[in-house]
Design a protein around this nucleic acid. Structure first.
Lengths: 148, 148
DNA sequence: CTAAAAACCTATTGACAAAGTAGGTTTTAG
DNA sequence: CTAAAACCTACTTTGTCAATAGGTTTTTAG
């Protein structure tokens, strides 16, 4: 299981893109400064997102990135998959001896599997649209926090 | 979030101890061989479990380890806490700039928090007793798998 | 009393990945 | 033609996991 900076930065950047679907595109420089993320690191993240078809790009001055689909069509599971590889807990190695297997199988089926099932279901149901909706409360709150 | 070998080995070893509450104690050598785990590594794991009060030990020949409490009183959350530190996903760093905070707060509250809440609830409810009960089906199956 | 079995203790190592840095090339608007 | 931006590849740093190593201490059995 991974929920690395890479994924978190990616999701945050995509929320920002989703906020600005009215703009033609957004520059990485903009996002990097907003979030205190290294531009070079963001570039790598967006290279992956672009290759996976989640965003599209325009080169040259006034270029940038925009979402390839609607926010509702982009699942958080897709984003994390692209950026962190698999997001599930790794499967147990079941000992090949004549013993020890029962314990390992139990851990797999009673601990790992249920956690994985929940995470998988949760991340596959959650879309960028959901995140945008839930961000509304913070957009105001954040301005209040820092402008006072 | 960690679900390392350390935790998995620990849980497996504790299942094995719980199977043998009739024995005075179990030697690590036994468990290590059953599971193909290095004895030295298991010793470190059990040192942590002992210091946390999950198992007790007897030194000297015929010594070994046994559960400090009933299987029903040992939560999987306790085991993983001891062996992996915290088992939850780390909190987002919220940017201190006047911007970017809304995205980060959204990721925290809409993605990280719900996953953490589930894992926390799940691991705190699940006890070693549950694991022992669910291991029954595998104890037979495993013997069948390898003795045929 | 002694030898061996087991727990107990502390330090070190090797492999690997995450996070970020570095230094470019290519495309294209103005 | 120049500068802004994406695009590409390689490297570095840092830290953690999973062991390995080499002991010391305690205690039972003979």
């Amino acid at each position: 299981m991974n929920f690395s900076k890479r994924s978190r930065y990616g999701i945050r950047a995509l929320i920002y893109l989703a906020w600005h679907t009215d703009c033609a595109c957004i520059q990485l420089n903009d996002i990097a400064e907003r979030n205190g993320i290294s531009l070079k690191y963001l570039e790598q993240i967006f290279a992956a997102l672009r290759k996976a078809g989640i965003v599209k790009s325009i080169k040259g001055p006034q270029g940038g990135y925009f979402l390839a689909g609607t926010p509702a069509s982009i699942r958080v599971a897709d984003i994390v998959s692209v950026l962190d590889g698999n997001y599930l807990l790794e499967a147990e190695e079941i000992p090949t001896e004549e013993n020890g297997g029962a314990e390992a199988l139990t851990v797999q089926s009673a601990v790992i599997d249920p956690v994985n099932e929940y995470i998988d279901q949760f991340l596959n149901t959650l879309t960028l649209k959901d995140l945008v909706e839930r961000s509304e409360q913070y957009r105001e709150a954040v301005q209040y926090m820092y402008y006072i």
